[in-house]
Design a protein around this nucleic acid. Sequence first.
RNA 1: GCGGCUGUAGCUCAGCUGGUAGUAGCGCCAGAUUGUGGUUCUGGAUGUCGUGGGUUCAAGCCCCACCAGCCGCCCCA
Length: 416
Amino acid sequence: MIRAVKGTRDLLPPDTAVWNRVDAIARDVFRAYNYHEIRTPILEETQLFARGVGAETDIVSKEMYTFEDRDGSSLTLRPENTASVIRAYIEHRLDQRPGIQKLYYIGPMFRRERPQKGRYRQFFQIGAEAIGSESPFVDAEVIELVVEILTRAGLQGFTLLLNSVGDHNCRPAFVEKLREALLPVAAQLCTDCQRRTETNPLRVLDCKVPEDQAIINALPSILDHLCDTCNHHFTAVRAHLDSRGIPYEIRPRMVRGLDYYMRTTFEVIHGNLGAQNSVLGGGRYDGLAESLGSPVHSPGIGFSIGEDRLVMTVDQTEAQTEGERLAVFMAPLGEAALLHAGILARDLRRVGISVEVAANAKLKRAMELANKSGARFAVILGDDEIAAGQYSLKDMQSGEQHRVTREELFQKIRNQ
RNA sequence: GCGGCUGUAGCUCAGCUGGUAGUAGCGCCAGAUUGUGGUUCUGGAUGUCGUGGGUUCAAGCCCCACCAGCCGCCCCA
């Protein structure tokens, strides 16, 4: 048997209805915040991610699906979408369009990690980017937007984490300070942290080993070392969030795994997800466009929601498939009735009523299928009905059945 | 990439100290009822016991490898 490749999966009905509902909610919220959809290719030049995400990140150094095309060029299945959106922004000179560009996307991403619950090699992200403004107002609006999507999707009990990681002015100095502070204590930390002290001192702050916490808590905090610009920005973001009543927790030790983040970073976690407890991550990336070759400064901020994790966490019972429920199940008896049913079904479908026709079943079987399909009505048409110019319309819930004309049929079904 | 647990029907699972697979529950199909579903009753189909080796007279059960899923680490969404 040929199976789906490791870390990928088929989404089947009725689960797909939940996904569609989440998609629809997100699109609805995006529309309200004046975001418009962008669809970038799933395949990009490998260089884009090496330069955009950072060659030293885990994503780029060991998780990408990279292969050589027939002409020898190196292509990669996108591991995230921000770099692609910025690439498209530069390529199509979206900076020449009026105002800030607010773009959203929904689609699959690919990372070759060890699969786990809530972590797949092909996974879906709902994300957005607001490009062309440094204003902290935009930061707050993006965060509000994402909270709105989660809330409307029915997610409960999530926590918004907020931090600032500084910019090219203050972060290098902080990293140096951190390295200095780590030198005398590194030997007492776990082996991972000893390695991180050399490779990426910021990661030490994110360590979860209980024994290390006392030492880590005593390390300097990025928030005490922000430059004036970053400090003002962070204060303003918080003021906007506070005035809108959006609750958050400051996590000075929250660091992000992608190189391009600066100033505002945020994350939403949820307790029911286990080890993969992050539903969403995002932040500001003011230098990204330039590093990808933009001729103009194009500051941006964005986020991406892990749709697989969101769907997993949302209350599935609430996500009923009511909108996709079958309206009419038709049971024609005999060849003449089947011809008639074909036309009637077409006419009902043209006005938006969903119809299934039992093409080749005895009445008992047809009624059984009508019941199992969850149809609201069954329509029985045989010689009797055709002769009388009527149909037998049965309400599957109450069991009531009446002879109705064509006009009454359309009316009764639409009134439900 | 590392460590641990698990793998029997479409699903949930039985399967004794190894003796040659279950009237199991749900689901699916059919009949009881040749123009009426949901309840009931009756019957039926579906398994290379994750895959490949090994030990043994004999392996679903023991051993090894691999694959997949889950949990943790790492990392992130």
